[in-house]
Design a binder for these strands. Structure first.
Length: 569
RNA sequence: GGCGCGGUAGCUCAGUUGGUUAGAGCGAUCGACUCAUAAUCGAUAGGUCGGGAGUUCAAGUCUCCCCCACGCCA
């Protein structure tokens, strides 16, 4: 039994996410976690909401709520959706947790001690009316280059020029609208990632088995221009982790918080503490500290490509810089984007299906299967309603669902709702066992390598093998000549349902559970196909389940396509 | 403009260190079967592997140039 730590990139607290966010990290992470648990491994699967930063403050202000309340509500909403999709987190934490506050502050203190944090004095815009500094998006004005009136403090949306807030003409606060602004000097902290550049480069170079997408992005950031740059890790905001040196105040940094990208990955660790504090686990150090037993842990991270720089460079720089036996990631699985019907998903334009809407249309397994079997691994993938309907109907309803239906109903009508006795294996059964044994091994290999699409294709082939066998064995004909042999064929068919219940669980957990419940059994991952096809003995009672998957109709497809098209520009 | 991932059958994608007639699923066509959710199973058709040049006994697979799409950055 091996130990696996798995984390999914933590979704931002601001709003409900679309399907692209789901397949970009949480869903494949869940697939992997479920698979490894199924194989009997010890798994800790963590995720959380990323709650700090300017967008959270702005979204809360827009909703007319205190930011803490807003985040609490949105966290609950995202937790409910995650549950709806069957995401089997051992804990779904919050980056705003007290655990993360304390850990982030202690990390910063240690990094200072290690000489990896420098203080920089910068000129920033201060609003007298608001009594605060105005970072990037809190200040707007007229662009000095193109005259665009609503240019933001960091960039003009019209001419795309990068701006310094002090350049803006007629600058005003986006909070109060006040123009009573002045430039003040203020201190900020920078993480000296550049000091660790060579160490990071060696580390990345050693990861020859990582996806190209992951290493190519990391290498670009390491070598582009002057190489890896130091990054500011503080902001003048109220909402966030207050800047402290461990438990002590940090002179000159009063009223400032750590920038979101610094505290968010640390939440991966704090989340394990939350898991313990919630009474779900006993020992988080054994997962995260190599001096406390984490050396035998394999740590796998899942994320979309936009998160790769933070996970390959910034967070590892933090971990390495600590020089304190913290666990580094072993494997980073990254994904491209999922597009929607020829364009991007768009929150602002209401384009595409969002996670809460998807669950209202169909059970989670439909989405899980389609998204996983089309995971954007090698390039961006595209969701279309036509493909979704065709694939879900064919794979789930016709190939798998109908298999369960045909064998259970045939048995009920010719024998009973018990596994029938009699018959012996012949060449057909030997072939089936050989085929399934080969395919099972391929399935396991793909799952071990986190090759999501290939694993899905192999699982589907395993389902098809059942139909092939039934078609050739043809118990509906055999029963006329040799009822005992037909009984043997049906018995194998019923055992196949049990096998499919076990093997399909990582992809479609609800349907898998229905299959196992109907077969009145549970079961562990198969070591040996021949053995597992005899697991349900003659005389074992089962029940005929409702159809596992109904078909998506043309009317539904057309209706949904129109409903989620959004407003086009 | 720079950089990155791609450009393989109508569609979605596989193609290991270059090596026999380029593969799968869907869709299409034909056939078989009738237990089942008008499901299933089999067979067939369909590709000058984005374009060009080069290296090689041999290139989808390596090198160079160009084109297209998407994304990131400036």
């Amino acid at each position: 039994m091996a130990r696996h730590l798995i984390t999914s990139a933590i979704p931002y607290i601001n709003g409900i996410k679309h399907l692209g966010n789901l397949i970009g990290s949480q869903l494949p992470a869940d697939l992997y976690a479920r698979y490894l648990r199924g194989r009997g491994h010890d798994v800790l699967f963590l995720c959380a909401t990323d709650e700090h930063g300017t967008p959270a403050e702005l979204a809360a202000a827009k909703a007319g709520k205190p930011v803490a309340d807003y985040c609490a509500e949105m966290h609950a909403a995202q937790a409910k959706i995650a549950d709806g999709f069957g995401l089997s987190f051992d804990h779904f934490g919050r980056s705003s947790s007290p655990q993360n506050h304390a850990l982030t502050q202690s990390f910063a203190g240690r990094l200072l001690e290690q000489g990896l944090i420098r203080e920089v004095t910068e000129k920033m815009v201060y609003s007298n009316a608001d009594g605060r500094f105005l970072p990037d998006r809190y200040i707007e004005g007229t662009c000095p280059n193109c005259g665009f009136e609503d240019a933001r403090g960091d960039q003009c949306d019209h001419c795309t020029k990068q701006l310094d807030p002090t350049d803006l003409i007629d600058a005003h606060s986006t909070i109060s609208g006040s123009k009573d602004l002045e430039v003040r000097e203020t201190k900020h902290l920078y993480l000296r990632q550049s000091e660790l550049k060579d160490k990071l480069a060696d580390w990345i170079d050693s990861k020859t088995d990582w996806p190209i997408l992951t290493t190519s992005i990391a290498k670009k950031w390491l070598t582009d221009g002057d190489g890896l740059q130091d990054r500011g890790i503080t902001r003048d905001l109220d909402w966030g982790v207050p800047v402290k040196n461990g438990e002590n105040d940090w002179p000159g940094m009063e009223g400032k918080v750590f920038y979101v990208w610094f505290d968010a990955p640390i939440e991966y660790i704090a989340c394990a503490q939350e898991w313990v504090d919630a009474g779900k686990g006993a020992d988080w150090q054994s997962w995260w500290r190599t001096d406390a037993g984490a050396n035998d842990v394999r740590y796998t991270q899942f994320m979309g490509k936009d998160n790769v720089p933070f996970h390959t460079l910034s967070f590892p720089a933090t971990i390495m810089g600590m020089d304190q036996d913290w666990k580094l990631v072993d494997y980073i699985k990254s994904f491209n984007y999922l597009n929607y019907d020829g364009g991007q998903f768009s929150t602002s334009r209401g384009r595409g299906v969002f996670q809460d809407q998807a669950l209202e249309l169909l059970p989670a397994d439909y989405w899980r299967w389609w998204l996983l079997s089309h995971a954007p691994e090698s390039s961006d993938a595209e969701f279309t309603w036509e493909a979704f309907q065709t694939d879900a109907n064919k794979d789930l309803a016709d190939v798998l669902g109908n298999f369960v239906s045909r064998i259970t109903k045939f048995c009920r009508s010719k024998f009973d709702e018990t596994v029938p006795d009699g018959g012996t294996y012949g060449p057909l059964e030997t072939t089936l066992i050989d085929t399934l044994s080969t395919r099972l091994q391929a399935y396991e290999t793909h799952m071990d390598n986190v090759e999501v699409r290939k694993a899905a294709a192999e699982l589907r082939a395993i389902w098809v093998a059942g139909n092939e066998y039934l078609q050739e064995a043809a118990p509906w004909s055999t029963i006329k000549e040799d009822p005992a042999q037909a009984a043997c064929q049906v018995r194998i068919g019923l055992n196949l349902i049990r096998l499919y219940g076990i093997l399909s669980a990582p992809f479609i957990p609800e349907a898998a559970k229905t299959m196992l419940t109907a077969m009145n059994t549970s079961g562990n991952w198969p070591d040996d196909i021949a053995e597992s096809l005899a697991a349900l003995p003659a005389g074992h009672a089962f029940s005929v389940p409702e159809n596992l998957f109904r078909k998506i109709t043309d009317e539904e497809r057309e209706d949904w396509a129109e409903r989620f098209a959004g407003t086009r520009d």
